[in-house]
């Protein structure tokens, strides 16, 4: 200490001064303005030509509740189909076999490149092209009997979702270090065996968060199935307003239910991300 050089003059001692808290008055002002705008919009809605009694009356109507249940069932099943297809197609896309690679690329191109509503309508109206379907000699059926609104919606939504999911899965598979794959090969695993045991489990931890996001989008995409008569919540709300002309009121009912579902799914997705991020930290070197 006695050997330290003397400090230069001219710099005051601030160590005893406290740092004042910032007032952030700009933030308060902005918040008040935004709140005022929200209140104004709310008042306009409350006083507008919307009969809120209809909203209250139909919010828990059995046909609406059944509709949102059907929405969720289709979203879950459609996502499941989309994930299964997505994994298969992603693996095909990364295969050394050029035939598999082209089929996978073609599938992704076709089903991402056409509107979902078109796909739904084509599935539902399959009988225009294939009046009967089945395996010749084993089982045949009329396409219109097999292709119910439920099945058409499931195929349309699931196969479309698979095209998007396959890209997420492909990114996930590519994100796994190639050394993992080589280490699996070095202990004698074949390509598919290595994918199943080593690469996919690591890829899943990366892709599950974006898949949660896709799922939330799919919940709302199910509303397109209303045009093929699948009785999800929008379809049922429409039936009500076709009878009583209360268009906006019933759409608000459907909108509130979608909002509720997404409000539940969003924190669930964050929980999922956090849980797998813990795993990710474990994965770090």
């Amino acid at each position: 200490m006695s050997n330290a050089p003397a400090l230069a003059e001219g710099f005051p001692d601030l160590s005893s001064l406290r740092i004042a808290r910032e007032s952030h008055w700009g933030r308060w002002l902005t918040a008040i303005i935004i709140l005022a705008i929200v209140v104004m919009i709310g008042r306009a809605f409350a006083q507008g030509q919307i009969e809120w009694s209809y909203v209250g009356r139909f919010l828990t109507a059995p046909v609406i509740v059944q509709g949102i249940v059907n929405t969720m069932v289709m979203a879950v099943l459609g996502m499941a189909l989309g994930i299964v297809l997505g994994i298969i197609v992603a693996i095909m896309r990364l295969s050394p076999n050029p035939v598999l690679k082209s089929v996978a690329a073609g599938y992704t191109w076709l089903f991402r490149g056409t509107p979902l509503i078109l796909q739904l309508l084509l599935w539902f109206n399959l009988a225009l092209v294939f009046p009967t379907i089945g395996i010749p000699g084993v089982w045949t059926a009329r396409a219109v009997d097999v292709m119910t609104p439920f099945l058409a919606a499931l195929l349309g939504l699931g196969i479309n979702q698979g095209a998007y999911t396959s890209e997420v899965m492909r990114a996930g598979l590519l994100s796994v270090d190639i050394g993992q794959y080589e280490a699996a090969q070095a202990i004698g695993m074949g390509r598919l065996h290595a994918l199943r045991r080593i690469v996919l489990p690591q890829a899943m931890r990366v892709v599950l968060p974006p898949l949660g996001n896709e799922f939330i989008g799919l919940v709302k995409a199910t509303s397109l199935a209303s045009v093929i008569q699948y009785p999800e919540v929008l379809h049922n709300a429409e039936n009500i307003y076709y009878a009583n002309s209360r268009v906006i009121e019933l759409l608000i009912v459907a909108g509130l239910w979608y909002l509720l579902v997404v409000s539940i799914l969003t924190p669930l997705q964050m929980l999922l991300e956090r849980r797998f991020a813990r795993g990710m930290v474990r994965l770090g070197r």
Partner: peptide, 18 residues
């Protein structure tokens, strides 16, 4: 009763036998 989206959809379902 089987619902359809519009008169064209209804005629389509008639043609397919639904």
């Amino acid at each position: 009763y089987v619902p359809g989206e519009n008169s064209i959809d209804v005629r389509n379902q008639l043609k397919q036998g639904r």
